[in-house]
Simulated assay, not measured.
Amino acid sequence: MIDKQFAEHFAHDWIDSWNSHDIDRILAHYSNQFEMSSPIIAQIAGEPSGTLQGKEAVGAYWRKALALIPDLRFELLALLTGVDSITLYYRSPRGLAAEVLHFGPDRKVVKAYAHYAH
C-alpha cells in the first residue's frame, strides 16, 4: 500500500529530478525491468507500439527527449494515490499530462503510463 508520506516525497523528488535534467537521478526511480507506455514514444523513439521495455531503452528515449526539449520543466498540479500506484498530474511544455506509476515491492516504478491532454 502506498502511504501519503511516500507518495508526496516521491512526487516532489520525481518533479525535481526531471526539472534538473539529470537522467541518472530520473532513472533512479525505476526498476531495471521498467516498462513505459506513452504516445510520445512512437514519435521520438520510433517505436510504433508506444511501449519500451527496460531501463536502458527508456533512458535512451528520455535522453533524446531532453535533447529535443532543453528547457523542459514540469509543474506538479495534483497527486493521486492508489494501492500500489500513484498518478502525477502536471503541466509540461506540451500542456497537461498525467502519469500513472505502478510500484514493485522495492518501491521502484515497474510500469508507467503517460497521458496527455489534446
Rank of each mutant, 00 (worst) to 15 (best):
residue 77 L to I: 12
residue 103 F to K: 04
residue 66 L to E: 08
residue 15 I to A: 10
residue 23 I to Q: 08
residue 8 E to Y: 13
residue 14 W to R: 00
residue 39 P to M: 02
residue 104 G to N: 08
residue 115 H to E: 12
residue 69 I to P: 10
residue 100 V to Q: 15
residue 67 A to K: 05
residue 88 L to N: 08
residue 27 L to Q: 06
residue 111 K to T: 12
residue 85 S to P: 06
residue 106 D to Y: 04
residue 36 M to N: 08
residue 46 G to E: 06
residue 1 M to N: 15
residue 103 F to Q: 04
residue 70 P to K: 14
residue 64 K to P: 07
residue 78 A to M: 11
residue 21 H to M: 06
residue 61 Y to C: 03
residue 104 G to L: 04
residue 100 V to K: 15
residue 113 Y to M: 11
residue 38 S to C: 12
residue 49 S to Y: 04
residue 64 K to L: 09
residue 93 P to V: 01
residue 36 M to Y: 13
residue 98 A to Y: 02
residue 114 A to P: 08
residue 41 I to P: 11
residue 1 M to S: 15
residue 83 V to N: 01
residue 12 H to R: 00
residue 39 P to Y: 07
residue 27 L to A: 10
residue 82 G to I: 03
residue 48 P to N: 05
residue 30 Y to V: 02
residue 39 P to H: 06
residue 80 L to D: 11
residue 77 L to G: 15
residue 10 F to T: 00
residue 76 L to V: 02
residue 34 F to Q: 13
residue 59 G to V: 05
residue 99 E to M: 11
residue 57 A to E: 08
residue 8 E to D: 12
residue 51 T to D: 07
residue 71 D to G: 09
residue 70 P to L: 12
residue 51 T to N: 09
residue 57 A to S: 03
residue 113 Y to S: 10
residue 71 D to K: 07
residue 71 D to I: 08
residue 8 E to M: 07
residue 33 Q to E: 15
residue 108 K to L: 14
residue 47 E to M: 01
residue 7 A to Y: 03
residue 21 H to Q: 05
residue 48 P to Q: 04
residue 31 S to D: 11
residue 82 G to H: 08
residue 27 L to N: 07
residue 93 P to Y: 02
residue 33 Q to D: 15
residue 81 T to V: 13
residue 113 Y to A: 11
residue 71 D to T: 10
residue 52 L to I: 05
residue 67 A to P: 07
residue 12 H to Q: 03
residue 33 Q to G: 15
residue 92 S to E: 02
residue 87 T to N: 13
residue 2 I to L: 01
residue 42 A to S: 10
residue 29 H to K: 01
residue 8 E to N: 10
residue 14 W to I: 01
residue 101 L to V: 08
residue 93 P to Q: 02
residue 84 D to I: 04
residue 6 F to K: 02
residue 106 D to Q: 06
residue 70 P to H: 13
residue 3 D to W: 00
residue 97 A to V: 09
residue 100 V to S: 15
residue 41 I to K: 05
residue 69 I to E: 14
residue 67 A to N: 08
residue 33 Q to K: 14
residue 66 L to G: 03
residue 1 M to T: 14
residue 113 Y to H: 13
residue 52 L to M: 04
residue 118 H to Q: 15
residue 63 R to T: 05
residue 74 F to W: 03
residue 100 V to P: 15
